[in-house]
Amino acid sequence: MHLTLHADYSLRVLLYLAARPDRLVSTQEVSEAYGISKNHLVRVMQALGKHGFVEVRPGRSGGVMLARAPSEISLGKVFRATEPDFHLAECFDREHNTCPISPACGLKGVLFEAREAFLGVLDKYTLADLTKRSRPDLLTLFFPTPSAREG
């Protein structure tokens, strides 16, 4: 299983915002912190705003910030909102399933169970849990001290 860049970047943005709850953060700042295309991040930020995870304030002095406390942002909900689909195999897509053994195959049920277990684990965690589980130096990766920037 491989997450799309959209879901990956969505989680990175949320982690970044959770590390800086005290202010608005610009798309440019996040782009520079992760080395990610600003244009791609704009779409990510819009999607996160649409689903109520972030508050987007447009304009020159605007930015983005978490729309709710990190403890209220479920990782499962973020994944469901940012992954385009969770079709692990062709047979999961009823409209485009051309697999000839689909009606008799036992694999679909196993894959469905695995997908639900994956999402179930994510449902147990929040953004706050991620920040607690991160190493203490997470902030210095985003915000290096002046001496680390010079070296």
Results as ranks from 00 to 15, higher is better:
G59T: 06
G59V: 11
R60Y: 08
R60S: 13
S61E: 10
S61F: 12
S61K: 14
G62P: 07
G62Y: 03
G62C: 07
G62A: 06
G63M: 04
M65P: 00
L66A: 09
L66R: 02
A67S: 09
A67C: 04
R68S: 11
R68C: 05
A69C: 00
S71V: 13
E72G: 01
E72F: 00
I73E: 01
I73N: 06
I73K: 02
I73L: 10
S74L: 03
L75Q: 02
L75P: 00
G76M: 02
G76R: 02
K77P: 05
V78I: 12
F79Q: 02
F79H: 09
F79M: 14
A81V: 01
A81Y: 03
T82A: 07
T82M: 15
P84K: 12
P84C: 04
D85W: 08
D85N: 13
F86C: 04
F86N: 00
H87W: 15
H87T: 01
H87D: 14
L88Q: 03
A89Q: 14
E90I: 13
E90D: 13
E90A: 11
C91L: 10
F92L: 06
F92C: 07
R94I: 09
R94T: 08
H96Y: 14
N97R: 05
N97E: 06
N97D: 15
N97G: 11
T98W: 11
C99K: 00
C99A: 02
P100S: 09
P100Q: 04
P100G: 01
P100E: 13
I101S: 11
I101P: 05
I101L: 11
S102D: 15
S102A: 15
P103Y: 07
P103G: 05
P103W: 02
A104T: 07
A104N: 10
A104E: 07
A104K: 13
C105P: 04
C105H: 03
C105L: 01
G106R: 11
L107N: 10
L107G: 05
G109Y: 07
G109Q: 09
G109S: 12
F112G: 10
E113W: 12
A114W: 01
A114R: 12
R115W: 07
R115N: 08
R115M: 15
E116Q: 13
A117I: 12
F118W: 13
L119R: 04
L119D: 02
G120Y: 09
G120C: 05
V121D: 09
V121I: 11
L122Y: 02
L122R: 05
L122T: 07
L122M: 11
D123C: 00
D123H: 05
K124G: 15
K124M: 15
Y125T: 05
Y125K: 04
T126H: 01
T126M: 08
L127Y: 05
L127A: 03
A128F: 01
D129T: 06
D129W: 07
R133T: 08
R133A: 15
R133F: 11
R133Y: 08
S134M: 12
S134W: 00
S134A: 15
R135H: 15
R135W: 03
P136K: 10
P136E: 12
D137V: 02
L138G: 03
